[in-house]
């Protein structure tokens, strides 16, 4: 070490500091890995149900064919799933525009005693796919062709 030029000594110091920083950041992120999540997925809710009445958020996909309006005309019931577990949800209020079957949703509320999630608020979750409206109306086969064309051209 004593033969190093000051410039190189500083370089070594900065590199060591950077490694320590990255390690500290990774440790912090690791420690936060469950607490920093914005919502629980159905699998977690089913495996470890939160205390009834405790405010939690549930996030997942609205299952196809599960949305129905109850007889009171304002309450909507649907099922949120993540491929591992399914949680029935009930919500009375204004639905976000992007709330459709097969799409992501985050429900804020609490778990009822019968295992139904009672939502006070719904947030629609947009996924990472951006598709023009024209493509949506095509059949699956046409869509694949267009996608293959654009990918081949890119």
């Amino acid at each position: 070490m004593s033969t190093l030029k000051p410039k190189h000594q500083r370089l070594v110091l900065v590199v060591i500091a950077l490694i320590a920083l990255v390690a500290a950041g990774l440790l912090a992120a690791w420690a936060l890995r469950s607490q920093a999540s914005y919502f629980y997925v159905p699998e977690e809710i089913v495996a470890e149900p939160p205390d009834p009445g405790r405010a939690v958020r549930l996030g997942g996909m609205v299952e196809e064919g599960s949305i129905r309006t109850l007889s009171d005309g304002v309450t909507v019931a649907f099922v949120v799933g993540d491929g591992e577990a399914r949680v029935p949800v009930r919500f009375a209020g204004i639905l976000p525009d992007l709330f459709v079957e097969g799409s992501g949703v985050v429900a804020e509320g609490r778990l009822g005693p019968d295992g139904t999630f009672l939502a006070d608020n719904l947030l629609a979750k947009h996924d990472e796919n951006y598709v023009p409206r024209e493509l949506q109306e095509m059949s699956e086969h046409q869509k694949r062709e267009v996608v293959a064309e654009t990918e081949g051209g890119a």
């Binding site: 992120a29 999540s37 997925v41 996030g59 979750k125 947009h126 990472e128």
Partner: peptide
């Protein structure tokens, strides 16, 4: 790196990355 990985490490309302190394979930248009 925390901002970059936040949507991968934690459940978030913000969508996961659309553009990852060499791939894009965003239509060419």
């Amino acid at each position: 790196p925390i901002i970059n990985r936040s949507v991968v490490w934690w459940n978030s309302l913000h969508q996961p990355p659309s553009i990852t190394a060499g791939k894009s979930a965003i239509d060419a248009e």
